[in-house]
Amino acid sequence: MSEALRSIIIILSVIGGVMTIAAGLIWVERRLLALWQDRYGPNRVGAFGLLQVLADMIKVLTKEDWIPPFADKSVFFLTPAIIAITTLLTFAVIPFTSTILVADLNIGVLFFLAMSSLGVYSVTLAGWASASKYSLLGGLRAAAQMISYEVFMGLSLMGAVMLAGSFDLRVIVEAQRGLWYVVPQFAGFVIFFIAGVAETHRLPFDLPEAESELVAGYHSEYSGMKFGMFFVGEYIGITLISALITVLFFGGWLGPVLPPVVWFLIKTFFFIGFFILLRAALPRPRYDQLMALGWKVLLPVSLLNLAVTGGIMLAGR
């Protein structure tokens, strides 16, 4: 098999796989939430309700795609694409196994941070372009929340980066052969997870869309497949953060007996499940509480974590 063909197959299967997982998460999330709330969830369409995904897709694709006349059309059009593209692009640097990865970039971690910081625009500009009060408030919240949490998301990663001595995600996984980084970098893992929840604005931290206050926040005015893009973008984001936690702190594809990809998927799905469990269990904090948690607790802890990690590494040298 030639090199080019191999890369094309990998790229297509990664995109296809990620999109399938993201679409399937619609069903997974509803079933899991139902499980934790003593309900059944969608179990009518197809076996176990699996075809619900298809039904939802048909619904969202055939819905009227309405652009409000007062909206800023070009920006309104652009924003749903940004979130889907930035999250999908990040999967290019995720090593599913030592051989299955799209681009072995030597600055993989930074590429992820860059893409996630561009993802902020999607939400912020969507809020602005809708020209509606609720959307604007959602967009403002999203901008402040996401750039705040990006700061210590980056800082929390650096512990793992320092231990591995590389920004390359594949090298980071290989460096965890002896011990997963969740043990030496437990604080980093916790902070990264919390920041990841805030970054994907998932449920305890879904203040940009807070339906009880802001209708649907930044995507109040979106309908049809544009809304669908936000929806899918959110699920891709969950998959992405889960995959990154797996790669950075839980040894990626490493594991006994089973093939590497299976290990990777098991670990990733575990964290996806945890994301959904958080949604089922926790209420939404107030906005100032969210910001206070970020700047007054997570930032100092992540800086401390970084300093201690550096100190121990220097002492051990």
Partner: peptide, 26 residues
């Protein structure tokens, strides 16, 4: 200079410009 490129995106395009947009939005 991939490192500089990444920092350009993270800091300038990703953080500083968001604040610009933030202010202009308001």
């Amino acid at each position: 200079a991939p490192f500089a490129a990444a920092l350009e995106v993270i800091i300038y395009a990703g953080a500083i410009m968001v604040l610009f947009v933030f202010v202009v939005m308001m």
